[in-house]
C-alpha cells in the first residue's frame, strides 16, 4: 500500500509548444471535423504533453490568444484522431479502450487527477484532496471551516486488490459543496466507481473551479 507522500509524487510533464507548421497540421486535422470548434491559424498556439498512463495518445491544448480572456480547448489525440475533452467521461473512456490504458500504483493518482480535472458531475467539480492545507481556496473558508477540513481530512491510500484486479484509492474528496470520504475503485480499463462514501463536512463553496481556477462564467 502506498501513502499519499509516494503515490503520484512525480511532477506533471510540461507542455511542449508546436511550431507554426506543426500547429497548422493539427488545426487542419481538426477543421476536417464538421463539428469542430473554429480556431484561427494566426492566433492559436498548440501544445501537447504526455500522459503517463497512455502510450500513443497525448493531451493537446489549443489556445486562441485573439480573444479576451483567451479561449482554450483540450483534445486527446494520437496525432491522427482528435477527441474533444468535453467535461464528460466519454472521451477518456474511449481513449482508454483505444490505447489500452496502463495503470499502476504510481500513476493511478495522476490518472484520477487527470480524470477529475476534465470531468464534471451534475453537482460540478470533483477534487481529490492530497493536503488540506494546500487545498485551493482554503483561505476563502471561515476559520472554523478550515479547522473542520483539516480535522476531517483522511490522507490518500492506494492499494491493489489482486483478486478483483482493481486499484482502490481511499481518501477525501470535495464534491457538491461537501467533503466526502470515499474509496475510488479503478478498474484496469480506467473505469471509476465510488464505494463507502460518507459525508464529512458541508457548506464549502469554491468561488472558481478548483482545477482551472478560472472564473466560472460565460
Amino acid at each position: 500500500m502506498l501513502n499519499s507522500s509516494l503515490a503520484g509524487k512525480s511532477s506533471q510533464p510540461s507542455w511542449t509548444r508546436l511550431n507554426r507548421e506543426q500547429a497548422h497540421q493539427v488545426l487542419n486535422k481538426l477543421s476536417g471535423n464538421r463539428d469542430a470548434v473554429v480556431f484561427s491559424k494566426e492566433s492559436t498556439e498548440v501544445s501537447w504533453r504526455s500522459l503517463p498512463f497512455y502510450t500513443n495518445y497525448r493531451l493537446y491544448r489549443l489556445i486562441n490568444y485573439a480573444t479576451m480572456p483567451t479561449f482554450s480547448m483540450m483534445y486527446l489525440s494520437n496525432g491522427d484522431e482528435f477527441l474533444t475533452v468535453d467535461g464528460t467521461a466519454a472521451p477518456i473512456y474511449t481513449v482508454n479502450e483505444k490505447d489500452s490504458i496502463r495503470l499502476n500504483e504510481m500513476n493511478v493518482i495522476p490518472y484520477l487527477d487527470f480524470f477529475f480535472t476534465n470531468v464534471q458531475g451534475s453537482e460540478g467539480d470533483i477534487f481529490l484532496i492530497k493536503d488540506p492545507r494546500k487545498m485551493p481556496f482554503m483561505d476563502t473558508l471561515t476559520e472554523t471551516q478550515q479547522q473542520s477540513v483539516i480535522a476531517n481530512f483522511k490522507p490518500l491510500k492506494v492499494s491493489h486488490d489482486t483478486a478483483a484486479h482493481v486499484y482502490k484509492v481511499t481518501g477525501t474528496l470535495y464534491y457538491g459543496g461537501g467533503l466526502i470520504s470515499a474509496t475510488i475503485v479503478v478498474t484496469p480499463d480506467g473505469k471509476l466507481a465510488f464505494q463507502d462514501q460518507s459525508l464529512l463536512l458541508t457548506g464549502i463553496h469554491f468561488p472558481y473551479s478548483p482545477h482551472s481556477q478560472h472564473w466560472i462564467e460565460g
Partner: peptide
C-alpha cells in the same frame, strides 16, 4: 452526501 456515482 452527494451521490458520487452520479458523477459518472
Amino acid at each position: 452526501a452527494p451521490q458520487l456515482n452520479d458523477f459518472l
